[in-house]
């Protein structure tokens, strides 16, 4: 299993009701169905991915999450998950609000633009970072809202969100020591487990 999925799986309550935003080919939901006996749905707009979900017998609903989750009721899911899609959203902050409206908690993963390689690339070459991990040019990238871990945590603070868990990995989703010590410089991918702060 993909390392990030393994981490997410550990944070998911067995038999719970899950919504997976931008669920891709449905691998995570399939794993969670098998290992955690969860029920739920994936939302996706990529046609090829939707077909893969159907082939996996994963419930998939064709819906653009940038248009909101207005058709889902408050607190109707135990956990709302979104992996590697935050940076591609038009309104990531609003989607985060929506996730915590329809779910009791959420799990989000995204790449760290504050990683030392990005910083080095920009400072030495004076160009927007392009790498194997982020292979797009600035004009054709689907990733329109990059942020660093610090940026994201500032947003969580503004929204009064509790960070229940946080895990930093590299792009192969392995943990490394430096990434644990100075995550914003050495972590490449972050997995955040969030809840609204109890008042």
């Amino acid at each position: 299993m993909r390392r990030d999925f393994k981490v997410i799986s550990q944070w998911i309550t067995p038999d719970s009701h899950i919504l997976d935003l931008a669920c891709g080919d449905g691998e995570l939901l399939q794993q969670l169905q098998r290992n955690k006996n969860i029920k739920g749905y994936g939302l996706e707009i990529n046609e090829a991915n939707i077909l893969k979900c159907i082939k996996r017998r994963v419930n998939v609903i064709e819906q653009d999450i940038d248009e909101g989750l207005h058709n889902f009721a408050d607190k109707s899911f135990d956990t709302v998950v979104m992996t590697s899609a935050l940076q591609a959203l038009r309104n990531p902050d609003k989607v985060l609000d929506e996730m915590l409206r329809v779910g009791k908690e959420c799990i989000v993963t995204f790449p760290n633009f504050g990683h030392w390689r990005c910083r080095l690339y920009l400072s030495l070459r004076g160009r927007m970072p392009v790498s194997e991990f982020m292979p797009y040019s600035w004009y054709d990238t689907p990733n329109i809202h990059f942020c660093t871990f610090k940026d994201f945590e500032a947003l969580c603070h503004n929204k009064k969100l509790d960070i229940v868990n946080r895990l930093v990995t590299d792009q192969q989703h392995h943990r490394n020591t430096l990434g644990q010590i100075i995550p914003n410089l050495f972590g490449e991918v972050a997995i955040y487990h969030l809840r609204p702060k109890l008042r």
Partner: peptide, 19 residues
């Protein structure tokens, strides 16, 4: 069709939907 899909997921039924 989405009215049907929404009612189904609100009732927590197994549903997939394609547009």
């Amino acid at each position: 069709s989405e009215e049907i899909v929404n009612a189904l997921h609100m009732a927590r039924k197994e549903v997939s939907y394609l547009k």
